[in-house]
Design a binder for these strands. Sequence first.
DNA 1: CTGAAAGCGCTTACAG
DNA 2: CTGAAAGCGCTTACAG
Lengths: 348, 348
Amino acid sequence: MTPSASGDKQNQPRGRVRLSDVARRAGVGTSVASRVLNADPTVSVRLETRERILEAARSLSYTPNAFARGLKTARTMTLGLVLSNLAYAVNAEIIRGAVRQAAREGYVVLVADAEEFEEAGDAYNRLLLERRVDGLLIASATRGRAIDGLPSQPLPFVLVNRREEALGVSVSLDDAAGTTLAVEHLVALRHNLIAHVGGPPDADTARRRLAGFKHGMTAAGIPASPACIVQAPFSERGGYDAGKRLLAASPRPTAIVAASLASAIGVIAASRSLGLRVPDDVSVVGFHDAPVAAYLNPPLTTVRMPLGEMAEVAVDALAQLIEGISVSNIVISTPPELVERDSTAPLL
Amino acid sequence: MTPSASGDKQNQPRGRVRLSDVARRAGVGTSVASRVLNADPTVSVRLETRERILEAARSLSYTPNAFARGLKTARTMTLGLVLSNLAYAVNAEIIRGAVRQAAREGYVVLVADAEEFEEAGDAYNRLLLERRVDGLLIASATRGRAIDGLPSQPLPFVLVNRREEALGVSVSLDDAAGTTLAVEHLVALRHNLIAHVGGPPDADTARRRLAGFKHGMTAAGIPASPACIVQAPFSERGGYDAGKRLLAASPRPTAIVAASLASAIGVIAASRSLGLRVPDDVSVVGFHDAPVAAYLNPPLTTVRMPLGEMAEVAVDALAQLIEGISVSNIVISTPPELVERDSTAPLL
DNA sequence: CTGAAAGCGCTTACAG
DNA sequence: CTGAAAGCGCTTACAG
């Protein structure tokens, strides 16, 4: 029977077994128990004793109290990951990459939605700033109070998919290369009236994608007039509105490079609402890939970026920072990849 | 200058200011400091003293150490939310509902992907079972080791969007009413060859949606032959494969009720690949709604379920459990809503 | 090889 | 009205 009659109804509030319980059961002191349970290499106990301790822990279902341990070690072995919008399929790749690499380094990751992070204010400050995480990975494209206040907090953090040297260490993608690749694809298809549905101007990723677009156009000798560039939120709705605007112009663009997956979906919807067929009347290229892209009508041609790799590298950088090692900004150089599907076709 | 020369380079490892620092700076003992900082109603200090303490905390940017506090109070004021697939847009509504209600009750929520939860095994056990959260909200449709092991853990939890009385307290939707509504919509449109792309048989939500489908069919006097029901994963791919199978049959169904949003997208893609037009040749109804549904080609008719409300109710239930109050299973009775878009049309 | 003891930073009766 | 002190459950030098 466990101490203090732990009851057994429905969902029992909390566990009671402490290190001292397993030590007692195994007939040793708490120090040895702690050491063998943590596989401390400096401890040397008889195999038999070790077995007894392990067995005691097992039979009592002992799990150490993270608070007590964290209080003592001042390390939580958990990393916080703040994302812009948990619902966007594209973020799944970042989450997976981060979790994978974190696990390799012994960390666990906590995911938070940036909006909650900002809105819930107090609650999230409590969570993330009270040393419950050893560091933060910020993958939010938009800024806000809580995030801007980070540099003044004594908490290591790295910006993921952002490049804001002033704010802190950042790990980013070569976004420009991505949109340039999209333009090149379209140019190879003989398009010469190419428009861009960019992201919000305050997102640095959007600025780089725009720059890459312009660069691609210039390189192809096509003028990128301001009229063929519109900035919009990274959402279906944003792409829809921008697409309508662009497609109503004359001359009408024959191809559009969208700055996100969601806005590409919006652009296709806009084309349809205008009675235009994709790719017959307009070719559309999206940015980033996710399973849904292949099942759209038409299946979407996109630029696939090394999102997972970026997340892994960011975890490494953060781990370094936590160890007190200083790290510098990183741009992932793995080249973007064009995933050709049916939303792009040669200009007739 | 802060004690122990806290340095000031790049991202400073960790904060140093403790309660005793603010107490000293304010010229009081730590007990009063703790009490006024926590707005303890039983403390009575001069307004002036209170101000001094608050000011000291502010100027030192004091944030309490969550571990020390958690160790003392045995409460973390955080709830874990385990989801099947963070990338599915539909989950965003659950996350938002949970975060909103949790904030009202003073909790913060930690989101974890069920796959990570299962795979990362050790890491997540560490995270979630070491009393770092006061309770768990499990919104994963599929089971696994970690989740099946939960009932034996001394950690309160509630199942969200599931109904498995044997496992623990669950809060679920009236899924059957949802698919029945979809069938009724189709029947009103004069369809009489209606098929169902169900979810995986091991998901209880899928079983209920299937039951609701059959119920709707029976009520309309239409036989629901086994041939018009296929079970598939809740994914685009799952819907695609199932849709192809169903649409190749003869007689060919004139309408399909999909058990998820992703599988509805797959069904539309399958129709297209077979040269069938939606809704002219086949009507398609999805289950659950998300922004992307409105921008699909064609915009998808779906059944919108009270996901947010379910999450809120689940948070309440969990909070009760944590307080030691026993709670029973809940089925959200708010009726599902049919969101008519263009993927369904009357049978000619 | 093993145990007693200090201390991580809080909160909270308890005593002035 | 305010402070000294115990104790939450660990880990880790340190001493045997």
